[in-house]
Structures are given as structure tokens and as C-alpha cells.
């Protein structure tokens, strides 16, 4: 009896390993942070984009309002792609779109807005990329849906029609 237990248990163990590898093949191995957990928005000090004056995060975000924070940069190609969507969102005007200009050259950024329009209610500067990290972002573009000083949802990469629909649904 003892002689049979060993081979069987070995085969079962390898069977399980096979199954796990097989399952593991299915999903992508590129890691993206969790996008759905609610988090308090971080506090920070920075400069306003046009005036260059110091601003505090608490003066930008008020309670009871819905915000969309969009991290963008003039050198980022996907930002151009999502920009028209932001312009459209702005027309509906229930949502306050806040821009965070990421590691950018001010001149280039201004030209970018002149060319494609400015959907942002306010823009502040993140020159060295450290504020983006406070937000838990790791690239451009990324967008955060904010309500009551809480991050409701995070969009990594350029916004698309699907995410716009989701945002619209939330505003209503």
C-alpha cells in the first residue's frame, strides 16, 4: 500500500502544478495597479500653470463636487489622442476638469493648449513628477475621477469613449 501512495501523490502534485501554469498562461503579466479602490486625495503644494502662483491642493478640490484630474504633457502622444474627448466633456459643464501638467516645458504646453483648446478649469504644474507619484500615477496620461475629496476611479492610459460614458453616468 505504501508503495502506491508515493507515486500517486507525486503525480497529483505535478498535476496541480500543470493546472496552475496552464491557468497562469491566460492572463497578461504586465502589472497595473488596482484602479477601483477609493482613496483620499493627497495634499500638496505647487504652482498654477498660467500665473505661476503657489496653490494648495485644498483650494482646488472642494467637497460635494465632482472633479476629473487629468495628467497630461505636450510631449505625450496619447494625450493628443484623448484631448478631443476632454474638450467634449468640458462642454457638458457639470464636471470640473483639472489639469496636471507633467514634466513639461511651459512654452510647449501653452502651444499645445492653443492648438487643441483648453478643457481645464484649472491647471497646476508637476515639474519633477513627484506630485504624480503622490497620486499613485506612473505615466501620462492618467485620469482620476474625484468626489468628496475621494478618488472614485482611476483611468490609466488615454481615456476612451467607454470611460467617458462611465464618467457621464457617474455625474448624473
Amino acid at each position: 500500500m505504501k508503495n502506491k501512495i508515493l507515486p500517486f501523490s507525486v503525480i497529483i502534485i505535478f498535476g496541480i502544478i500543470f493546472f496552475i501554469f496552464y491557468k497562469g498562461l491566460e492572463d497578461s503579466k504586465i502589472y497595473t495597479p488596482d484602479v477601483n479602490t477609493k482613496k483620499e486625495i493627497p495634499l500638496f503644494n505647487t504652482k498654477e500653470f498660467f500665473s505661476g502662483e503657489n496653490v494648495n491642493s485644498s483650494s482646488i478640490f472642494e467637497l460635494d463636487k465632482v472633479y476629473l484630474l487629468n495628467i497630461w504633457s505636450s510631449w505625450c502622444v496619447p494625450c493628443r489622442q484623448e484631448h478631443p474627448l476632454l474638450m467634449n466633456l468640458n462642454l457638458e459643464n457639470k464636471l470640473n476638469i483639472i489639469g496636471m501638467n507633467y514634466k513639461d516645458n511651459l512654452k510647449n504646453a501653452e502651444n499645445f493648449l492653443k492648438e487643441l483648446g483648453n478643457p481645464y478649469k484649472e491647471i497646476f504644474i508637476d515639474l519633477d513628477g513627484t506630485i504624480a507619484i503622490e497620486w499613485g500615477a506612473y505615466g501620462v496620461p492618467e485620469s482620476f475621477l474625484i468626489y468628496n475629496n475621494e478618488i472614485i476611479k482611476k483611468y490609466i492610459g488615454p481615456l476612451n469613449q467607454e470611460s467617458i460614458d462611465e464618467i457621464n453616468l457617474f455625474i448624473k
Binding site: 507515486p7 507525486v10 503525480i11 505535478f14 500543470f18 501554469f21 496552464y22 498562461l25
Partner: peptide, 15 residues
């Protein structure tokens, strides 16, 4: 998938 199946055929054969 191919290598995985092949690998485990060899493993079970050896066992």
C-alpha cells in the same frame, strides 16, 4: 501551451 504540455508529458513519462 505547447511547451507546457510537452514538458509535462516528459515529466509524467519519467515518473
Amino acid at each position: 501551451l505547447f511547451i507546457l504540455v510537452f514538458l509535462f508529458i516528459l515529466i509524467f513519462l519519467s515518473i
